[in-house]
């Protein structure tokens, strides 16, 4: 049921709006946490092969700081909040006031890691609670897991469930930027990835009264 032309343009727009509502709320939360302006791009909804998925942030090798949650309830799937390590270091330095560490060094202080985990938890929580309100669906996020590692190794966890039914994933991707870094490179762009399980699209569109034909 999942293939490249699975979604019509109306359905794509709905998924974009879902990304917009969720990530908009999360970006506001981030802005409040750091007491600074955060920019957000229009969400993109893509039907991608797993290989294309790996290229979304700059390659499977790229090292990212990630918070990963599994979603349960009326809607199931996976959610990731990803920051390139340079940007993660900047945010967590600002948040904690510690300036003598970097996520690209082997020993990251426990406090920095747990600050990042809490940041991810708050942001993913605001993303999902906005969705839950909008969709009037019960959404239960798992305890967040943190990883600082290669993008490919991390994101593949979001593909395991999907890979049992399909060779494509539908990803709702919203980019956030820190206007202070003023850098257009992938090394500074954060991402919210929402990867609903294949069954969830049917539930979601049914709930919103969208024709599945």
């Amino acid at each position: 049921m999942l293939n490249n032309n699975f979604l019509n343009s109306f359905q794509l727009d709905i998924l974009k709006e879902i990304g917009n509502i969720g990530a908009g709320n999360a970006a506001t939360a981030l802005s409040g946490l750091l007491n600074k302006k955060i920019e957000m791009n229009v969400p993109s909804v893509q039907v991608v092969s797993f290989e294309e998925m790996m290229e979304l942030v700059g390659g499977a090798d790229m090292v990212v700081a990630a918070v990963f949650l599994q979603i349960d309830g009326d809607l199931t799937g996976n959610m990731f909040f990803l920051l390139p390590i340079k940007q993660a270091t900047i945010f967590i330095q600002q948040l904690t006031g510690m300036s003598d560490f970097s996520f690209d060094e082997p020993s990251v202080p426990e406090l920095a890691l747990s600050a990042f985990q809490e940041m991810g938890n708050i942001l993913a929580g605001s993303y999902l609670s906005a969705l839950s309100d909008f969709l009037q669906m019960h959404i239960v996020p798992s305890v967040p897991a943190v990883g600082i590692d290669m993008f490919g190794a991390i994101i593949s966890y979001g593909l395991i469930e999907i890979s049992q039914v399909s060779d494509f994933a539908i990803v709702i991707d919203t980019e956030i930027k820190d206007p202070d870094t003023m850098n257009e490179s992938d090394l500074y762009k954060g991402h919210f990835f929402l990867l609903p399980d294949p069954d969830s699209f049917v539930k979601l569109f049914t709930k919103l009264g969208v024709d599945m034909e």
């Binding site: 499977a60 090798d61 290669m150 993008f151 490919g152 190794a153 593949s156 966890y157 395991i160």
Partner: peptide, 9 residues
């Protein structure tokens, strides 16, 4: 021959 980003794979 190379493959990148093996996690659970």
């Amino acid at each position: 021959i190379r493959t990148s980003g093996l996690g659970s794979c």
